[in-house]
Amino acid sequence: MKRLFIASLLSVVAVLVGCATPPETSSSAARQQLNVDPDVSYSMTVAELFEERVAQAGGGSLLHIQFAVAAHSDAELAWKVTWFDANGMTVKGVGEAYRRATLLTGQTRYFKAVAPHSRVTDYQLHLREPN
């Protein structure tokens, strides 16, 4: 009876220890730089996505990105860039809202964004169709 009690106590402790294991965190490599909602693909194509670091007068450099969208039909687009530092932490920009744009059939539009700080090393561009 005593053995049974000890065995069950050990199994409960084992289960609790299992629960306490910290969750695995994914690395920044798992994050896609271009995140396009499927609905957007019906009316437009992301034709280009460029990035470059531009040197600043006082030293350091700032990340600039530019992307081009070619429309197959008249469409509305909402886009937003999230910026990350070398550790994968987000770096705040001016606001968090999506920027809206209208595209006409056959039109290719170019959009630019500038990182809010020189410590930004990566980004994620999200394109979606506004409601």
């Binding site: 007068a57 006082g58 700032l62 600039h64 001016v94 606001g95 809202a97 920027r99 964004a113 500038v114």
Partner: peptide, 22 residues
């Protein structure tokens, strides 16, 4: 927010607010 974002990105992108003396 749109006006502020446009202004700040353009200021930073143009280098107008980068002090050459650091």
């Amino acid at each position: 927010e749109k006006a502020a974002t446009d202004a700040v990105e353009d200021m930073l992108g143009s280098g107008a607010v980068h002090n050459p003396n650091g």
